[in-house]
């Protein structure tokens, strides 16, 4: 594994980041760093803004305030060409793989190589088979995406994501909807590929137990802010009631079970003056 040295600038550096959709504040002052060579998890409940945060890092959305640097460049200040240059150094695995349904597994993985390189076809073939071998699906190269299971589709998408050997890999909910074996396979792949490629990874997830085993550092996002952060050991040992509720999956606690509503009795019987 590439050991991060403190003098190297972080791959992603976020300071006081703000973002809003129309009138709704989604991110309210996020501070976060992704050091080189590390796997960092962003966790939080559904709708807490973690996917938004990843889209901001990928430049699909533009921040409304604060600073967001990727590879040392401020995403908000660069033009489309420069953004596309940066994206060639990034890979993003979408929640359900987002494979191109009109192309075979082979062509999906070859897609970035065909689009961005002038390599001869034999070399592209070797690279594609190598990437597919890394995710254990070399034998599925001829299949179409509709012939794959959910776990296989995500592994193919992972092979496509790493086709150009990215320096930053982002995973959007990589564990959602997978059986325990596929889930463990994806988890191990995230760790192994990160170390083998010498890349840095960001995993957006709410799968606490799987993440605690594979990541180096965890950020908890709640209501648009970083609610807690730390290494897996620090998180397990945390006495913070919010972290405790999230890690152990308790239904009630600082995060209430009930969506805010008027009192139940009043809702059933009507208020006294009605």
């Amino acid at each position: 594994m590439t050991s991060p040295s403190p003098d190297l600038a972080p791959v992603v550096d976020i300071r006081d980041l703000h973002f809003r959709y129309d009138a709704r504040d989604v991110l309210r002052g996020i501070n976060m760093r992704v050091p080189r060579g590390k796997v960092v998890a962003i966790m939080g409940g559904s709708g807490c803004g973690k996917t938004t945060l990843m889209r901001l890092i990928g430049g699909q959305l533009r921040p409304r305030g604060g600073e967001l640097k990727v590879f040392g460049e401020s995403i908000a200040d660069i033009n489309r060409e420069r953004l596309y240059d940066l994206r060639r150094r990034m890979g993003m695995l979408f929640q359900f793989g987002a494979l191109f349904t009109d192309m075979s597994v082979y062509d999906n993985v070859a897609f970035p190589l065909h689009e961005h390189t002038d390599l001869p076809e034999e070399l592209i073939r070797d690279l594609v088979l190598m990437k597919l071998h890394a995710v254990g699906l070399r034998g599925a190269a001829h299949l179409m995406p509709n012939e794959l299971s959910g776990g296989m589709a995500r592994r193919v998408a992972l092979a496509r994501t790493i086709a150009l050997d990215p320096q930053l890999i982002m995973y959007d909910e990589p564990f959602t909807g997978l059986d325990p074996i596929s889930l463990s396979v994806i988890g191990q792949l995230i760790r192994r590929l990160n170390d083998a490629l010498g890349a840095s990874s960001i995993v957006v997830t709410h799968d606490v137990q799987e993440s605690l085993q594979i990541v180096d550092y965890i950020y908890f996002v709640s209501e648009g802010r970083i609610a807690a952060e730390g290494t897996p050991d620090e998180i397990r040992a945390s006495t913070d009631p919010w972290v405790h509720q999230f890690v152990w999956g308790e239904s009630d606690g600082p995060v209430p079970f009930q969506y805010p509503a008027r009192p139940y009795r009043e809702a059933l019987l009507g208020s006294a003056d009605a």
Partner: peptide, 22 residues
């Protein structure tokens, strides 16, 4: 429309391939 709904267009843009051009 389906490519957009299944995030294929976003995935393409994240691979630095412009979906309008491709």
């Amino acid at each position: 429309g389906l490519m957009k709904a299944t995030e294929q267009l976003s995935a393409m843009a994240m691979m630095a391939v412009n979906p309008v051009a491709r």
